[in-house]
Design a protein around this nucleic acid. Sequence first.
DNA 1: TAAATTTCTTAACTAAAGTCAACGTTTTTA
DNA 2: TAAAAACGTTGACTTTAGTTAAGAAATTTA
Lengths: 191, 191
Amino acid sequence: MKNNLIKYCQSLLDFSESEISIIKDYFITTTIGKKDYLLQENKVCDFVAFIEEGSIRHFHIKDGNEITCDISLENNFITEFKSFNNGSKSYISFQTLEDTKVQIIKKNKLLELYKLYPKYEILGRKIAEKVAMRNTAIALSLASSKPETRYKELLNKNPEIFQRVPQKYIANFLGIKPESLSRIRKRILFN
Amino acid sequence: MKNNLIKYCQSLLDFSESEISIIKDYFITTTIGKKDYLLQENKVCDFVAFIEEGSIRHFHIKDGNEITCDISLENNFITEFKSFNNGSKSYISFQTLEDTKVQIIKKNKLLELYKLYPKYEILGRKIAEKVAMRNTAIALSLASSKPETRYKELLNKNPEIFQRVPQKYIANFLGIKPESLSRIRKRILFN
DNA sequence: TAAATTTCTTAACTAAAGTCAACGTTTTTA
DNA sequence: TAAAAACGTTGACTTTAGTTAAGAAATTTA
């Protein structure tokens, strides 16, 4: 059985066979149907998830509108740290965009893992660092370029996303309306 | 002597007196003059810094333009994780906006600390999580609101920043041009 | 597979941001 | 403290995004 989680962890740290099997024991694999929720806003995020296959949209509802602040494909960890750490209500929802297979570890199990084997604490740190890096890059992109450039960069860096994710969510992630994304695409065609 | 770093660490984890003095030993306090650099783009970021007093602007140069992707005041940790972890060139510069006092730990000392006392590994994880949370919030804000709303929210959440940071950097951080920020401010006055 | 729903595109119009240039104000520095 | 530099505001104009509405295309569902 394919296990991207293990590969990913091994890319972060050297683990022995027995350490690997501990990870396997602690994570639970689940499949979530398309458009179902891994986390609903205002519920507590008591887990960390790794996407084995599929895609998940991170969004927040503001003035009745959904704001997509990230779109994660396979081989990414996701959690809402604030809620996870403080036990507060999450201000973000995680919704699948396709049938999605995730490996999940619940907070209590993760804390147990941290306590039992300090090495997993290192793993936890590295995962948090990865999430931080990704969010830094997203913020930079949004602060810097104009929408057209952001579109081109995303297309360049992650063309697959356009095959798999409805444009309206991509538009939202780029910080614009779907109509504007349409226009940008058209504009580029004729350049 | 005031030591915000210690207070901050204690807010994240319980440390004994001796554990605290280890932190004090490992961090070095430096003062950086206004507009000087803590890190220059394309150099390796081999440290984690904590701002005791002052403010630091995070920016990236793109097509010859500086893009301010964050503005950190006192009581924040800053580092560029990608460069720090991989030893690659940083794509971000850290420049002070005022005379700024930072406490710095170099990578080799931090790794030593992690190895010697696993508890600091937990601290490292929590710091990374904090950075991730902050960047998530920034990305969400940029993806969501229109500039005027972002301005109001920043003003509401962090009014001090407007007393201490030149508007052109704030404008840039809000993803707009200084002229636009001027106009937004004017527009709000007459509403 | 036909109907219903959702998504994408287009158009016309409005609102807002970008650009360029000028000028007054503030801050820096010599 | 006088001169220079940097910063903020304003105005005129251009470009681009938002809004609304309609219809085409694709996808979902019965």
